[in-house]
Simulated scan of single mutants.
Amino acid sequence: MANYIRNDWTLEEIQEIYNMPLLELVYRAATVHRTFNESNEVQVCTLLSIKTGGCSEDCSYCPQAARYHTGVDVQALMKKDEVLEYAQKAKEAGSTRFCMGAAWREVRNNRDFDRVLDMVKGVNELGMEVCCTLGMLTEDQAQKLAEAGLYAYNHNLDTSSEYYGEIITTRTYDDRLQTLDNVRKAGVSVCCGGIVGLGETHEDRVKMLYTLATMPEHPESVPVNALVPVKGTPLEHNGKVNVWDMVRMIGTARILMPKAMVRLSAGRATMSISDQTLCFMAGANSIFAGEKLLTTPNPSFDEDMAMFDMLGLKPREAFKAEQENGGHHHHHTLEATTA
């Protein structure tokens, strides 16, 4: 296995890694993890839904789609002060990345977007890495977010391009890739992963990892989500994701994208500490923490800190990548805007 970052992985190579005997996969992934990262460091991220429900997309897993009856009430965009209060609490609890999610199909240039830009400025001033997930973005909107101090943008691929149409029909895979491209051009860090347990095959998972690992630049952050089946959505009867599948996804992602933060995201609430430990072993170095991960429950911060303590893990500080590169926060440099 190479000691450098590759963007030319083949499907066959990825399949081979994904299908390796499990302990061998974990060992190799752990080795790559130690080569490229501080293996005892995990970033704690908090996600807040700043605008819940009423989305016009039809993502089959999502309780926020207007067309499913899931008991999620449609709420207006939160006020900036409330959001900052939440961010402050998350920061005090040890979170260094704060992600704001809005159930929108795409960003529109209106007062709501101006309010989000304002929230981004506010959270950035708290010294946290600000992330947003607001649906599709134009290049110009990505640039505005970057100027407001946005650190990262989340936009998941969910699954392979082949299976995508089975899960979502209201937009295309290419729409997803275009938004990611717009985010990159604006000099914003990319957070992009997928969901396991949608009814996809192992091959679909391999194909999704292939798409991520062959991007000209790997996403800086790759969330691996386990489907949390929600009553009222088309996928409500899907079975629980096998923990070994999560470990395989994380281990493979770590080998393919050595420096990415691989995030243990949705579905963590139902995982035992030993299940989570295997994921950290296999190279997960980021978790979501906090009361609610958008619309699904999450273990409390205290339990997480007790787990970190027991495993000898420490929370990663904010803006670490910039410090290591000896630079500042990447948007505040002129190069980012003129390059």
Rank of each mutant, 00 (worst) to 15 (best):
M1V: 13
N3I: 02
N7V: 11
D8I: 06
W9Y: 12
E16Y: 05
N19L: 07
P21T: 06
V32C: 06
T35Y: 10
S39V: 11
N40H: 13
V44P: 01
L47P: 03
L48H: 03
C62Q: 00
Y68C: 10
V72G: 02
D73C: 03
Q75F: 10
K80P: 07
D81S: 14
E82A: 15
E82T: 14
V83T: 14
L84K: 12
K91R: 14
A93C: 10
C99R: 03
C99M: 09
E106Q: 15
N109L: 14
D112G: 05
V116D: 00
D118V: 04
K121D: 07
N124F: 08
L126M: 11
T133R: 02
T133D: 03
T138D: 12
Q141T: 11
A142G: 11
K144C: 14
K144H: 11
L145P: 05
N156M: 12
L157A: 08
Y164Q: 02
G165D: 08
E166H: 11
I167D: 00
I168M: 09
T170P: 01
Q178Y: 08
N182S: 14
K185D: 13
C191G: 03
G194A: 03
G194M: 06
G194K: 06
V196C: 10
G197H: 05
T201V: 04
H202K: 12
R205Q: 04
V206G: 00
L212E: 09
E220T: 05
P223C: 01
P234A: 05
P234N: 03
L235F: 05
E236D: 10
K240C: 08
V241L: 12
M246Q: 07
R248I: 04
M249D: 04
I250E: 01
I250A: 00
I250N: 01
T252C: 05
T252I: 09
I255V: 13
R263P: 03
A269C: 04
L278Q: 07
L278D: 00
C279N: 09
K292P: 02
T295N: 02
T296R: 04
D304W: 11
L311E: 05
L311F: 13
L313R: 04
K314L: 02
R316P: 01
A318R: 09
A318I: 13
A321Q: 15
E324R: 05
H328P: 13
H329F: 15
H329R: 15
H330A: 13
L334K: 14
